[in-house]
């Protein structure tokens, strides 16, 4: 091994090897998959309210903007968006199905996540559909966790997505957050101020609400009907609204 050329050619070959296996082959095999109609109506006797849908669909307007904020704030360093086939994941996400390639067709880039310091969010749109809950949580995640005040979450707050506004004499803004008691505003804002989400906060929540992988695809069927009990988010909502 004293010839540069030998090393060069050898490395080129080995490099092309892993490139073909991990980049080219997946791209050729699944890279061009298209959205498809999910299989419910043909596969199972159609149930009430069980309509077919072309899946996935590109996220529209607000949710698409929200995705950019999710990316900008690096939410994916603490939250994954991938349901593994392990049964425990089905419990955490309340969705008995694993994620597949097709779930991410319109996500450029898809933020699969690197860590689970917080829960997986692949199905958060179904688990927690309440907009006010999300807004309050983004504004002050530390004020409550699991619905209990005083439970400190490690999620950072995002106050820059909100404005403090003086409450007008004719009444507060309809979009102001309904804050639970456990959220304590800074001193100068405690009297006569309300917290109003910016359009960025609304977009981010629209994105979160658009996250649900509850479709029945050929390669990823749902194993059991969606869990009806929504323990986590119910308790959380109660905590947030009171």
């Amino acid at each position: 091994m004293n010839h540069g050329t030998l090393i060069f050619l050898g490395l080129l070959l080995t490099f092309l090897g892993s490139w073909s296996g991990m980049v080219l082959a997946p791209q050729v095999q699944i890279g061009r998959q298209q959205p498809d109609v999910q299989l419910q109506p043909l596969n199972r006797p159609p149930a009430e309210g069980d309509v077919g849908e072309i899946y996935p669909q590109a996220r529209a307007g607000l949710a698409a903007q929200g995705r950019e904020i999710y990316q900008r704030e690096g939410c994916y360093y603490c939250h994954s968006q991938q349901i593994s086939p392990h049964p425990a994941d089905a419990r955490w996400t309340q969705l008995n199905r694993f994620s597949v390639h097709r779930d991410y067709l319109f996500d450029q880039p898809a933020m699969f996540g690197v860590q689970r310091l917080g829960p997986d969010l692949s199905n958060i749109g179904l688990r927690q559909p309440d907009e006010n809950w999300h807004l309050v949580h983004l504004f002050a995640p530390n004020a409550f966790m699991d619905g209990k005040a005083g439970n400190k979450s490690t999620m950072p707050p995002y106050p820059h997505l909100f404005d403090y506004r003086k409450i007008m004499p004719q009444g507060g803004s309809t979009s102001a957050l309904k804050l639970p008691e456990s959220v304590i505003l800074p001193k100068q804002y405690q009297d006569g101020y309300e917290v109003v989400p910016t359009s960025e906060a609304r977009a981010l929540v629209a994105y979160l609400k658009s996250l649900h992988q509850d479709v029945n695809l050929f390669e990823a069927p749902m194993y059991a009907p969606k869990a009806k009990t929504n323990v986590v988010s119910q308790t959380a909502t109660n905590g947030a609204a009171k």
Partner: peptide, 14 residues
Amino acid sequence: DPNVYGRFETPKEV
């Protein structure tokens, strides 16, 4: 097979 993911082992199972 491009359609075999996760809990499935073979295309037949899918």
